[in-house]
Design a protein around this nucleic acid. Structure first.
Lengths: 168, 168
DNA sequence: TACGAACTATTCGATGTCGAAATATTAGCA
DNA sequence: TGCTAATATTTCGACATCGAATAGTTCGTA
């Protein structure tokens, strides 16, 4: 047998120590590393849960992007939002359209463009999955009081406010 | 031209509103959504920066896992740590070994197992990339005081402490 | 109007990833 | 010891993704 896989907190401590030893700043690495390991766990759960609905993470990303936008999006915009090449999006949309979750409608004012929409069935899938994932997410935050959750959200939102300025 | 891509903060607000409308809890969604959009941006930057070093995100995940472990790992362990199928790891390791970044050594006490190690060259790549990414990460947190960074890290670590208990 | 640059979606070949099966070894136990 | 179940890695065929090239459209401007 292999050594037991270390716990998440233990992995976190080691990761921070390693990054600091390699020249990273501790106050930075504690935050960044924590965010990453949290996302990793969340992704694992999403993949599992979505598999029950026969949806891949990539397909789910398209569905949520459309739901959040609240308006039709083009394949290029969807590719940007989901961090994927435009050519990959073509195939993904083919598959999703085949399952009746989205529909493509040409833009009459610009014939190079195509609008992608969630269908009724797509919206149904969205609400279903959201209600499921909110359960897991609530579990993750159960050790934080309401006030702490608010503080955590506030601090993260300060960080997000700066995001666009950086890669410009 | 398409409508301008909304800013990160704007996307965040819309996302939270959409999830809450679909049945999610607001205090949960504010945190989870923020974590996700932060990770997404970070990933974009990592991919770009690693491309300069001719390394993919998947290959980088292997290098960091080995660096953080501080000891040899098996292909299966690496597959677990990087959220990838064991069969995919075989090919990744082939490529990394071909570039001299890792080496495989058989385990004499258990001949079904193989140990994977970072080479000198692998460690060199690791330190190089870390110093580069710490710059971006510091920029991301520049609007937080030292005290706020500590508080943010603390709250995230409370969350992480619970992670292992949940999917059991 | 006419032309070239910029944009949009798609196709195409190469590569990465997946799940299942194959191979080899170890562990548990009668 | 001998047999079965479990573990670890790799191979294999199917599918997803990528970057480059293609085809069609719009925009700016001469």
């Amino acid at each position: 047998m292999a050594r037991r896989t270390p716990s998440a907190p233990e992995l976190h401590r080691r990761a921070v120590a390693t990054y600091v030893a390699a020249g990273g700043e501790e106050s930075v690495q504690r935050v960044i590393t924590a965010v990453q390991s949290l996302t990793k766990k969340l992704d694992q759960w999403y993949v599992r849960q979505l598999a029950d609905l026969d949806v891949t993470a990539g397909e789910w990303a398209v569905v949520t992007s459309l739901a959040k936008a609240g308006e039709p999006l083009t394949p290029s915009q969807l590719a940007d939002l989901t961090n994927v090449a435009p050519s990959s999006m073509t195939h993904r949309l083919d598959k999703l359209a085949g399952r009746g979750l989205i529909e493509r409608t040409p833009d009459d004012t610009n014939r190079t463009r195509i609008f992608v929409n969630l269908t009724e069935e797509g919206w149904r899938l969205f609400s279903l999955a959201i209600r499921g994932s909110d359960v897991v997410e609530s579990d993750v935050l159960q050790d934080l009081s309401d006030q702490e959750r608010g503080e955590l959200a506030r601090l993260l939102e300060v960080v997000i406010d700066r995001l666009d300025d950086i890669d410009a």
